[in-house]
Design a protein around this nucleic acid. Structure first.
Lengths: 416, 416
DNA sequence: TCATTTAATTAAGAAAACTACGAAACTCCC
DNA sequence: GGGAGTTTCGTAGTTTTCTTAATTAAATGA
């Protein structure tokens, strides 16, 4: 079946959650027989399932009974295991079984502390992984997805740089995962996961910049419903925008990165510099802000963050900012200030409106989206083929001389 | 014929300049019959032409005589008029006849001063245009391409904002052009034209950020060989990144934009503030820098520009900066300083190297590339159809319900 | 001159889309 | 309850587009 249409159909279903063959055909502009055939195939592959549920209020506003033969509703298969998601946090690693049709909140079932010892951290991590594997309900997944903070070379499946989880740098963690489960495994950059998760949990947001505050400050853009990516493994790194006049050393090796001002660590540092007598904790910082409002040391840091955000908005041509992470834990005045500061600096504010909203991190939805995109209906080749290839540890690079680009690139639309 | 392969073939020929059917087929991974058929069609449409020229050194290093039947070399048609390019400058408007296969330097044949009167500037511009039309060798073009500085809504063919050519704002200049020539007319943002021009004159540069210094400071990114674009009409606007500590008012309505520091006007302003006795001219500024080197007022401004460039590189995931315009006219120390400053701030410098090069503005090549992309082998529909539609002033939006996305989006790869 | 090599064209076939038609399933209305 | 109207879904046949295989063409080199 045409790869493009297959991808488009799956994607549409990811967004709409539930739909009939006819609705899919209409919304994608393809003919009914085509949609029907693709659906048949996807059901045979256990990716889609028919659901008997009555269609209550089908989103078009007409919740009333409709004329004609009712369509058989379809959704991404929820009764099957789907993917195994692994989130590599700074302190601990979490695991979750992710059914394909899971747009819900994150439910991380199992977790363990990351290796602390300097010797053999990867072997220790592997051992913990094996322990965790025993506790899982299922062993059969379509693949394993590893979300990692830092800089990730996704095509090569390698972790390049992770200032907060140094032991993972340069490691081939997917290979470790494959030793444990013998399944295709992918590494994905955390911010991209979160951004995609937000997109699929809020399908109406098709163009936005997600900014995640935490130990670091990262970003990822969704442009035209697709995650923005460039050939370089870095992108969306707005935490490492230099801030004029800032001379703090950053973990990345440079001096003056915005991240050194508005990461949790950076904010606490500034806070304790301004108030040496206060406790140097995140909670104390929050309490202080709630009590005294926004003091200059804070607004200056927030302005620096806003500059980086504005720069990104102006360059990418976006008007919506989604903010996740620690900044949303502080009193709302903080987010308000950033929002106003972005309004002042972003160019589109002169022509229209800028939106700046807080949101939770939706890693599960993002991981599923990436898994579907790269394992279930991958850009090139048959899914089974590529599964095998990946599980054998081969790169999934297509032979350019053999493949006709017209075939290879029917995959368009979801370049990822 | 499949639109994707047609586009791919034309694009390949744009890059390689000259190639035979067999070479094209091989390099694009399609079969020889397919390439042959597409070439036949393109020749019939007068877009390609066969050229008898012997193939001297075909780029593969083997300039020696090769075995076998020699391929019939093809190139974009140079014997036909191609496009009419119009460049809307700040002071004057220039015209050039652009053959399709033109990768040469810009040759603007005719130009006239822009309307100065406040009354009826558009009508006056139209009159000048009619005058200029008489001087042209040909009246038959595939279309007219208007390059405009400022903010342009390219899909809607409208000029939204142009701080330096206020009379053009909100005007439908393509309609004016159509009244004069009765041909399809497109407005394109100047920086995007220049970036595409650089890309096609240097096909090895597939990922870069072009930064153009002049009355304003604009940017445009080429990512994966394609101009980056978002749904919003702004993008690449790195001149309007706020610079912390800068309080100059910008023409865009905001305060503190980098552009107010490093545009020609901004630099002269800073120069005259630091040296009140000097002449307030660009030449005097250049002489002064050549004589005394980089003074603090200048390095601070350049640092601000570097921050904006770094922010863009980090967010877009790029490692090459192409600088055009007035900054390249100053002593080389200036570009060197910016280059070093970018090295310090751009994140990729921690992993690899950052490149920062000056280059001339290649508007002609960029306009031709855009014209080919949007008029000769447009993404959707037949070229003739869309030509007619455009010349009738209709939008060339495809009917989504009618077109099969598999057909519509075989256009992949060259999303533009 | 003839074998070898490469280019371009022709012919036949496969993939994937479409249109057209008909059966199935439901509502509405008499 | 039963026909008319609607909508869904599947089947059959057609079209488009690209492929492979075979053929013809044009050059080199012994």
């Amino acid at each position: 079946m045409g790869l493009l249409n297959k991808r488009a159909l799956v994607r549409q279903l990811q967004k709409s959650g539930i739909a009939s063959r006819a609705v899919l055909a209409r919304s994608l502009g393809m003919s009914q027989p085509t949609a029907g055939k693709i659906v048949d195939e996807l059901i045979a592959d256990n990716i889609l399932e028919e659901v008997d549920a009555v269609e209550a209020g089908d989103g078009n506003g007409n919740g009333a009974t409709r004329l004609g033969r009712p369509g058989r509703q379809l959704q991404l298969n929820r009764s099957q295991p789907g993917f195994l998601g692994i989130h590599l946090g700074i302190q601990e690693t979490s695991l979750a079984e992710l059914p394909l049709g899971d747009a819900d909140e994150d439910r991380w079932r199992h977790s363990f502390r990351n290796p602390a010892t300097k010797s053999q951290p990867v072997a220790q991590w592997e051992a913990e992984l094996r322990e965790a594997a025993k506790k899982l309900d299922s062993k059969k997944f379509l693949g394993v997805l590893l979300s990692v903070p830092g800089i990730v070379d996704e095509p090569a499946n390698k972790i390049l740089f992770s200032p907060n989880i140094h032991w993972s740098e340069g490691q081939d963690l997917p290979a470790v995962i494959r030793r444990v489960w013998n399944l295709p495994a992918l590494v994905v950059q955390e911010e991209r996961v979160v951004a995609l998760g937000h997109h699929f949990n809020n399908p109406e947001d098709e163009n936005f910049l997600l900014v995640d505050f935490g130990e670091g400050v990262g970003g990822a853009a969704i442009v035209g419903g697709k995650p923005f990516a460039s050939p370089l493994p870095i992108s969306g790194e707005l935490g490492h925008t230099p801030a004029l006049g800032n001379h703090r050393r950053c973990g990345c090796g440079a001096t003056g990165c915005v991240e050194t001002l508005v990461s949790t660590r950076g904010l606490i540092e500034s806070f304790s510099a301004a108030h040496p007598k206060s406790k140097k904790t995140w909670a104390a910082l929050g309490d202080h802000i709630a009590a005294t409002g926004l003091e200059p040391w804070l607004t200056q840091s927030l302005d620096a963050a806003a500059v980086a955000i504005c720069a990104a908005l102006n360059v990418l041509g976006l008007r919506q900012v989604v903010i996740t992470g620690s900044l949303a834990e502080l009193p709302p005045a903080v987010l308000d200030y950033v929002s106003r500061s972005v309004q002042n600096g972003a160019m589109w504010a002169r022509f229209g409106s800028i939106e700046c909203v807080g949101a939770p991190r939706c890693r599960a939805a993002g991981l599923v989206a990436i898994g579907i995109d790269r394992l279930v209906v991958p850009e090139t080749g048959d899914e089974l083929d590529s599964k095998l290839k990946l599980s054998r540890g081969e790169t999934s690079r297509a032979k350019p001389s053999k493949l006709n680009p017209a075939t290879a690139s029917k995959n368009e639309i979801y370049i990822s």
